[in-house]
Design a protein around this nucleic acid. Structure first.
Lengths: 185, 185
DNA sequence: TCGACTATGTATAACCA
DNA sequence: TTGGTTATACATAGTCG
């Protein structure tokens, strides 16, 4: 499809790889568009370049709907593999029972999230981001408040920040009340 | 690319639409594969036929990773729109509080399920949930400390929950130190 | 680097088995 | 239906400005 036949293997020359990437990427997305129109279908194309840049196209429906469809299908696939069976072999029975008992809660939580926001998939992420932000704010305010109170008490009551990875809380008498909390897993 | 030029519009004849769908779909997926190899990229193609059947291909990386990449990108976009702000308006606070209170359960469930099934998908969610969890712990500790300190100060220093919308902090002498804090954005 | 240009390899529309 | 064949339209590799 050009002056010369090309083997399908990594193009070593960086600049021609870049050029080919751009041309073929556009070609691919155009083909997807055509197919979706010609045959009334919904097509999502996600391209992540070597350098991590994302290019996407959704034709016939929006990206989230198409991805949802994939996820549903995928979930079915997992189920079809009888993963419950596999799980049983890999998980201590006690843990499995706990999971099963909690499934209702889990489903209900997810439903609440999805229903309440009645929007597409990434909402959950969004919600949690907001949550993290406001928790951080609250934390900062509480810290300030503690400072103020501590100075009023006039004792060495304090919060110790260990690096910026975790923290522990000690009371005035030096008892370690709480172990180090990993701030990020 | 055939005996005749075709207009890009829905093919009315059902059987030739079916044939075209099958051929072009394979072509599209093959193009994606080639591009991913030629230019070292990761490409996901999701095709949902008119009848709801799903065809998918992932080259260069697995589907879940590529979709994650999209979701992260998408989440960033949403954040730029300050959707955290919008969330405040759309989600009844009570529901949100219930959800937050359940995060411990949820994270533990997700972790167990994921470990058991060796699924990589929800990594980001998991990470953020960890974040939320530890922030909540931190918050609780700070609150406890505040209580202790306040009682040591021996005055009416307290945290006031105003309805369930926010909170303010006042010191013993009645000075309003802080304006209303939105507990949850 | 970037967009045109074109010669050429490919994909595929129509046919056919 | 499905799976080949073939004539053609199209995509694109290399090139030039």
């Amino acid at each position: 499809m050009g002056r010369k036949k090309v083997e399908i293997k990594r193009i070593e020359n960086k600049s021609s790889r870049q050029v080919t990437f751009s041309k073929r990427r556009n070609g691919l997305i155009e083909k997807a568009r055509q197919l979706s129109i010609l045959c009334e279908s919904s097509i999502a194309v996600l391209v992540v370049s070597g350098s991590g840049k994302l290019y996407k196209s959704a034709s016939g429906d929006n990206m989230s709907k198409i991805i949802d469809r994939y996820e549903i299908h995928h979930a079915d696939e997992l189920e079809a593999l009888d993963l419950a069976e596999k799980t049983r072999n890999y998980l201590p029975l006690k843990e499995l029972l706990e999971i099963v008992q909690s499934v209702d809660t889990l489903i209900s939580l997810e439903e609440q999230l999805e229903t309440a926001l009645s929007v597409t998939r990434a909402r959950k992420t969004e919600l949690m981001m907001g949550e993290v932000k406001s928790l951080q704010k609250t934390e900062n305010l509480l810290r300030e408040e503690n400072q103020t109170l501590a100075s009023q008490v006039g004792k060495k009551t304090f919060l110790v920040i260990e690096g910026d990875r975790g923290m522990s809380w000690e009371n005035g008498s030096g008892n370690k009340v709480r172990e180090t909390l990993p701030l990020l897993k």
